[in-house]
Amino acid sequence: MNVLLFAPGLLFLLLTQFGLRGALPKLGICAVLQVVLGLPFLLENPIGYLSRSFDLGRQFLFRWTVNWRFLPETLFLHRAFHLALLATHLTLLLLFVLCRWHRTGESILSLLKDPSKRKVPPQPLTPNHIVSTLFTSNFIGICFSRSLHYQFYVWYFHTLPYLLWATPARWLTHLLRLLVLGLIELSWNTYPSTSCSSAALHICHAVILLQLWLGPQPFPKSIPHSKKAH
């Protein structure tokens, strides 16, 4: 399911480079791949496969939560809390799209146009541009998940060094970045989770989000390959 957290960033990149008409075939490839991979299950029990694989309304157990241990269990299980997290998630994604990712000066609706018909043609995507957008999209989803269980750490642990060091921030020294990484690791390795470990995890997530938002560049520049002297 965590691959869905990358979807907003992927959609933005596709629209930026190809427009709506050009992005649709690429999205079709993603859809066809999912159908092909799930074909054995779809042929055997399509209703069961679809209902259980994409059960967005399932209830998580409070005993396993890593990120919301400091909340009362009644609030953790409350539907209004889940909707508030979803609304915050979507709002923050929209803010990043409007204020951090889309910096051409044109309306966001210009992404739907063919790139050749825009006032400002899109720049070629660099590897850092792509990785930054996808990792940030995934990280925002992690921050506002209804519950993070211990196995969910694999969703984003490998992206944390990049998110911490790729965006320049004078106020966040290397020592503080290492401290953030260490506290996140400690929070995930505390079993059972405690109010302190959950709070520490959210504080570290907030620091990373703040750095991504306040960074002086919307995307880190690609590092040119050095040419070997002959």
Rank of each mutant, 00 (worst) to 15 (best):
P220L: 02
A206D: 07
F54I: 04
Q59I: 12
L95D: 02
F12C: 09
F12L: 12
A200S: 10
T16M: 08
I184G: 01
Q123C: 11
V97I: 05
P8F: 01
L214F: 13
F135A: 12
N67R: 02
L134R: 03
T65Y: 10
L164P: 00
N138A: 13
W165M: 04
T126R: 15
L93C: 10
L10V: 15
A200P: 00
K221H: 14
A229N: 08
L10P: 07
W213V: 03
G22V: 14
G182E: 02
Q151S: 11
R100N: 07
Y150S: 06
T159F: 13
L178Y: 11
L20R: 15
P218A: 00
L24T: 15
F70N: 12
L181W: 09
K228L: 12
Q211T: 05
G22T: 13
L56K: 00
T126L: 11
R52V: 03
L164R: 01
V66T: 15
P72E: 03
L181C: 13
P192D: 04
P121G: 04
F219E: 02
F152K: 00
L186D: 11
P192A: 05
L27Q: 12
L183F: 03
E44A: 15
L176N: 04
T194D: 00
F135S: 01
Y49T: 07
H78T: 05
F135H: 08
